[in-house]
Design a protein around this nucleic acid. Sequence first.
DNA 1: GAAAATATGTGATAAATGTTACATTTATAA
DNA 2: TTATAAATGTAACATTTATCACATATTTTC
Lengths: 238, 238
Amino acid sequence: MDFRKPIKEFTKKFDFKSDFLFEGLSNTEKSHVQSLFEHIRFKRGSKLFYEEGIPTGVFLIEEGLIKKYKTIIGEQEQIFYIYTNGELLGYHALLSNERYQDACEAIEDTKVSFLSKENFENLLDEIPVLKENLLSNLAHEFGVLANTIGLLAQKTQSVRLAVFLLIMEEKYQKYDGMKGGIRLSRFDMANLIGATRESLGRCLKEFKDRGIINIESKAIRITDYKDLFERINNEESK
Amino acid sequence: MDFRKPIKEFTKKFDFKSDFLFEGLSNTEKSHVQSLFEHIRFKRGSKLFYEEGIPTGVFLIEEGLIKKYKTIIGEQEQIFYIYTNGELLGYHALLSNERYQDACEAIEDTKVSFLSKENFENLLDEIPVLKENLLSNLAHEFGVLANTIGLLAQKTQSVRLAVFLLIMEEKYQKYDGMKGGIRLSRFDMANLIGATRESLGRCLKEFKDRGIINIESKAIRITDYKDLFERINNEESK
DNA sequence: GAAAATATGTGATAAATGTTACATTTATAA
DNA sequence: TTATAAATGTAACATTTATCACATATTTTC
C-alpha cells in the first residue's frame, strides 16, 4: 500500500499553499507580473527581512528554503514556518501597513523573485483577483497556524517529530528533489518541534534504531513512511 | 509599582484586537452598519457555528465569552482563541469563500449582533475602509497565533498557565468586570495551555498555595500579578 | 591548513508531566 | 427532590523531557 496520498492529504494541513496565488490570472497578466520581478539571491544564513524592519516588498521563492520566525517573550526565537519553492512571503506587513512582525532567513541558498512594495500595491489595484487570492490565502494560513498550535499542545515530542519529518521531506522534495536528504540544523529542528536539542537527538536516534529513518552526516531520509504516518494517527496524545 | 501597564502590553500579543474593525467609519456608516445587525442570544454551551458548516454571516459579540477550536488529527479538539465583548468573528470563511474551518461555542451566555453573509459582503463593497481594516486584522491575527505557537513550544506548563491567567482575567474583565472571577472549565483551561486536566490542577493548586491566586468554587482570581508577570519573563524556558 | 568556534552526540540525573484509579463535589435531568 | 451524570480534586506511580557535563565531529576564520 502506498502511503504517499494520505500523507500528502495530512501534510496539507501544515502548508500555506501560497503557490496558488497567481492562479486565475490571464497570460497577459502573468507576464506583466513576471516583468516586474527582480531576481535576487540569498546565501544560506542571510536574512530576507528582520522583525520591526520596514517592508520593502514581497518575495517569491524560485528555489530555496527559508525559515520564518519571531521573538517570543525574552530573546527566544520561535520558528513557525518553513517556506520553499513557489511560495510567496513578506506580504503580511504590506497588507496591514505595519512593520515586519517576524523575520525570514534562508536556511539553504535561495533564489527569489522580488517585487517592490510599489509594484506589489499597483498589481493589487490592477488585478482584483490577486487581492481575492491573497485574502483567501490569509484565511487559509490562519488554519495552518491553528493546526500547528494543536500539534504542539496535544502531541508528544516523537509524534511532533514524525509530523515535521513528513513536512520537511516534502519541502526538500520541492527544493532539490531530496538530493541531499533533510539537512535542517538540529537547533532549528528542535525549535520547530518545541524540544531541546538533546531530546530531539534522542528521538532521532530512536527513529534511526527502529529503521524508520536513515541518517548520514546530518542528512535525514525517511525509510518507513508507514510507521511515521501510523505513529501520528494512532499514538494517543500527551 | 503597578503591573497593569506592562501586563496589558504583554497580553496584547495574544489579542486579536478585532474591536478596532469599525474604526475610521463615519457616523452615518456606523449607524448604517448598526441597522443591519440582528440581535441573537446563545446560551452557554451552544455553538455559533461548526467546522465544515456553510458560512451564514459574521458575529459581533455584545456581551459574552466564546471559544474557537478545531479538530486536530483524530478527534481531538484544540481551543486556540477565546473571544469576548467587542470582537468580531466568523469572517475568515466568508473572505476565503470556504466552509468554516473551525467551530465557535459560547462558554458563557452570550449576546451577539449578527450580520448576514449578504449584508456583510455588501458592506465590504460599500465601505472600503472596512476591507482594509479586515486585512490588517488578519495580518495581526497571524502574529497572535505565531506568539501562541512560541508559548506552547518554549514555555513550561506553569508559565503557560501564568500567561493564560493574565489573558483570561482581561477577557472576564471585559465580559462582566470579573464579577464572578475566571470560571473556565478545567477541561477548557487544560486544553488551552496544552496540559492534562490533572497537571493543570496541580499547577493551580501550587499557585493557590503560594498565594498567587485565589480559588473559590472554580472561580479564580489573581492576587499576585507581580509574581505571575515575573514568572513569565524570568523563568527560563523548557 | 591549523586553530578556534560552532554544532552535534551521549549518558547520568533531575524535574516536569502524564497515567491510573478513585473520592468528592457540582450540575443535570427525571 | 432525588437519582444520575459530569466535572473536579488528589495521590501514587510511570514516563517523558529537560539539564548538565563532556566528548566528538564539523565549520569557519585567519
